[in-house]
Design a protein around this nucleic acid. Structure first.
Lengths: 198, 198
DNA sequence: TCATGCGCTGACCGGGCGTTCAGCGCCCTG
DNA sequence: CAGGGCGCTGAACGCCCGGTCAGCGCATGA
C-alpha cells in the first residue's frame, strides 16, 4: 500500500535534490556567496523552481541544515547503547560524528556558518546546535551521577568537548590525507579522560 | 622630537576610529549585514571618507581584524614568562584571553566570522588565526620535551584546546552574568591537565 | 487525436549596497 | 584678507541578487 502518491514522491525527490545542491554550493562558495542561481544550476532546475518548494532562501538553508543535523543526531543516538561505561559512550559519539562528516563532507561549511547565526535565521538552526551540546551534557551528567567522572559544570564541559572535537573534525575535512579516525578519537578521549599531565 | 607629523597623527586617529566603528557594527549586525553606510555613521564620517583610508570593504575588515588579533597575541605573549611550569603557562594564556575578550567584547563576532573565511579574504585573517594554534602548539611541544605532559600530536591538541576554550569565551561574552573567570579557567585547566575521570 | 491544466522556466523587476567623484568649505599661508 | 588646495561629503551609478509571473510544453485523460 503506497501511503505516498506519485506526486508526493516526485515532490520529495525534488526537495532533496535542491537541498543537496544547496549544500554542495555552500560548501564550495561559502554561505554568503552561494546564490539561488548557482544552486538552481547545481540542482539542474530553473531558479523559479526552487520557489515552488521553498518560500525563500532562508527557508531553503534552514531546511537543508535541519535535514543534515537531524541525520547527525540520529547517527549519534544510534551509536549510543543504554548501559555503557562513559568511555565507551564518548568514543561512540566521537566515532559516529567522524563517520558522519566523512560521509557528508559538504555539510561542514553549512554547519560552521549556522552554529553562530548572524542576522535573524535562528528559527531552527541555533536550537539544533544547542541540542547537540545538551545531549553531550546529559551524557556527562549521567556519568557524574554514576561516579565515573568528576563533578564539573556539565554544560561548560560539553561545550568544550564538542567544540574541540568539531575543530578536529573540520580540520580533517580540509586535510588531503587525514590520519586514521581512531588516532584522533584516541587523542580526544585520552586527553579528556586521563588529562595530558604525565 | 615628534617623529610623526600632525597629519600622520590625524590620519592614524581616523583610521582607528573607522576600524573601531567597523568592529562595533559587525558585532551588532553580523559580518554580512554590516554596511559601509552604517559603519560610516557609527564613525561619524561620510561613506566616501572611508575610501580615503581603505581601498575597499575587504581591506577595512582585514585591517580591523589584524589590529585586534595583534593586540590579542601581544597580550598572550606578555602574560607568558620564560621559565614557567606548563600549568602556569596554560593558565596565563587562558587568563589573558579571557581578559582580552572581556575588554573587547565587540571583537568576538569578527573573530568568529574570520576564523573560517568564506570567499577570498584570507590575506591576513586565516594565517593570523593559525598562528594562535601554532603558538599554543609550541608551548605544548616544549612541555612535552620537558616531560611535563604526555607526548601527543601538539598541533591537534592545540586545536582542541584553543577551540574548546574559544567556545567558552564566546559563551561568556553572550552571557548576561558569566561565572567568575577563575572558575572557567580552573575548569579548562583541570579538565585538560588531570582529565575528568575520577 | 485533441483539449486541458499543471509544473517548470527564465526574462524581468526592484531594491540594496559597494564604490566613485564633482564640488564645497575650511584651514593655512602669504 | 584673499587665494588656493586639501580633505571631506553624499548624491549618483551600476552591479548583483533574491524574488516574481506570464507563458510554454508536456503528460494525461477523454
Amino acid at each position: 500500500m503506497p501511503a505516498r502518491s506519485k506526486e508526493e514522491v516526485v515532490q520529495e525527490y525534488r526537495v532533496h535534490s535542491i537541498e543537496d545542491a544547496a549544500m554542495r554550493v555552500i560548501a564550495r562558495r561559502g554561505m554568503s556567496a552561494a546564490t539561488m542561481q548557482e544552486i538552481a544550476e547545481e540542482a539542474g532546475v530553473a531558479k523559479g523552481t526552487i520557489y515552488l518548494y521553498f518560500r525563500d532562501r532562508d527557508e531553503l538553508v534552514d531546511k537543508t541544515f535541519e535535514r543534515a543535523i537531524t541525520a547527525l543526531h540520529a547517527r549519534v543516538e544510534a551509536a549510543l547503547g543504554v548501559e555503557q561505561p562513559f568511555e565507551e559512550k564518548l568514543r561512540a559519539i566521537l566515532t559516529a560524528e567522524f563517520k558522519f562528516f566523512r560521509e557528508h563532507r559538504e555539510f561542514f561549511r553549512l554547519y560552521i556558518s549556522l552554529r553562530h547565526p548572524e542576522g535573524r535565521q535562528k528559527r531552527t538552526c541555533e536550537p539544533r546546535y544547542r541540542a547537540r551540546i545538551e545531549r553531550m551534557s546529559a551524557v556527562l551528567q549521567q556519568a557524574m551521577e554514576r561516579g565515573e567522572i568528576r563533578r564539573i559544570d556539565p554544560t561548560r564541559l560539553a561545550l568544550f568537548i564538542i567544540e574541540g572535537s568539531d575543530a578536529i573534525i573540520i580540520e580533517r575535512v580540509l586535510e588531503d590525507a587525514p590520519p586514521p579516525e581512531e588516532a584522533d578519537v584516541d587523542l580526544i578521549a585520552g586527553a579528556i579522560l586521563e588529562g595530558i599531565r604525565t
